[in-house]
Each structure stands twice: as structure tokens, then as C-alpha cells.
Design a protein around this nucleic acid. Structure first.
Length: 184
DNA sequence: CACAGGATATACT
DNA sequence: GTATATCCTGTGA
């Protein structure tokens, strides 16, 4: 099991290539972004609120929030209690339960099943009910990567503050990214 | 490429 | 109370 009681900047690149499943459905993580406590783009930056409460909880748990009123986004909480930091899981390469994901997403193309934080949550059936749940127990299953993976970094997507920090990590050459990587 | 859709949180009056 | 911004996606130009 991955140790989440460390800096988000250490953990985020290690998650590329790890396998994430929810009720046995999921795949290899190919794209993540790091958000830390000093980060104006982080939900935890302005302190604890009802929405962000689980971001301030124990590490190794999920922080799920509603984005743009429509989509769910999954974050993995890092470090210690009262220090908000998390990894946003942005894309994965579907490997388990493809048919179930197709049904939930209403389309066939594997490249569109989980290439983006909102799509990923829809494909895996993640909702606000998963907010605060531990990642090492069902329905979640998180496996460390088995072999070597080439990880590249770039600037983050979809934010308006602290936009030049190279805290987006992705597997080099993956076809399943939400967008091409732009190096810092 | 632009933009609507839509819920929630925070900032402001 | 009202205003504004948002860790996005699908659709239609």
C-alpha cells in the first residue's frame, strides 16, 4: 500500500502507473495533479469548509467534490491531519470492467472513458458518497505500480491561479491523457 | 473553436 | 441577500 503520510509532491509522481479500482472497475492511473497547502489553486488554501472537510482529514482517504455543479472529481488526501494537500486524479487507462464503464459513460471509445477527472468519476461510479472513504478498503482498491514507468511533468489544467507550477504528472506518451502535457 | 449547462462555496453589499 | 468564480464536459459551429 502506498504511504500517504508524506509530501504530496513525493506521492503524486509515484501514483502514475498505479492501479485504481472501485468495486473492481478501473485501470492504471496515467495523469494526476498535486495541490498543497500553500497553493492558491487548492481548495484547502482558504481553510476548512464543509465541502473541503475531508481534505483536512487523515491521509490515505478520498476527497470527492462537485465541480462546475455537474461533475465529480476524485482527490487522494496526503500528509497529516489539518494540513490540506491532495492529488487530483485526472485520467486513467481503463483495464478492468470496460463494459461497465461503457454503460455508465454511454459511449464505446476507451480513450474517452476516463480521460478527465469528471469522466473518470462517472466511469468508476464515484460520487459524493465516496467522500472521506479510506482508499485501502472496499469499494476502493489501490495497487502500487508493478514495473517502471516514465513520468513527465507539466503545468496544471483548468486553474487561474499559480498556473505556472509544474505540478501535473503524466505517463510519457500515454494515449489516455485528458489533454497533451505542456512542460513548464 | 466558443459556450452553455449547472451546483456549491465564498466574497461582497 | 446578490454576485462571482469554479481542479469540467459535450455539443454544435
Amino acid at each position: 500500500m502506498i504511504d500517504f503520510s508524506r509530501s504530496v509532491h513525493e506521492i503524486a509522481p509515484e501514483l502514475i502507473g498505479a492501479t485504481l479500482l472501485v468495486d473492481g472497475i478501473g485501470g492504471r492511473i496515467v495523469e494526476v495533479e498535486a495541490y498543497d497547502q500553500e497553493d492558491p489553486a487548492s481548495h484547502g488554501y482558504r481553510g476548512r469548509t464543509q465541502r473541503t472537510a475531508s481534505m483536512f482529514g487523515p491521509p490515505g482517504h478520498a476527497y470527492v467534490y462537485r465541480s462546475y455543479g455537474i461533475h465529480w472529481c476524485l482527490n487522494l488526501v496526503c500528509e497529516d491531519v489539518e494540513v490540506p494537500s491532495a492529488v487530483l486524479v485526472r485520467a486513467l487507462e481503463p483495464t478492468h470492467g470496460l463494459d461497465q464503464m461503457r454503460r455508465r459513460r454511454g459511449l464505446d471509445d476507451p480513450r474517452l472513458l476516463a480521460s478527465g477527472p469528471g469522466r473518470l468519476c462517472q466511469a468508476l461510479g464515484i460520487t459524493g458518497e465516496h467522500d472521506g472513504l479510506p482508499l485501502d478498503r472496499p469499494p476502493f482498491e489501490l495497487r502500487e505500480r508493478a514495473g517502471p514507468v516514465q513520468v513527465h511533468s507539466g503545468v496544471r489544467v483548468g486553474i487561474t491561479r499559480a498556473t505556472e507550477l509544474p505540478w501535473r504528472y503524466a505517463e510519457a506518451g500515454s494515449r489516455f491523457l485528458s489533454r497533451p502535457l505542456r512542460p513548464a
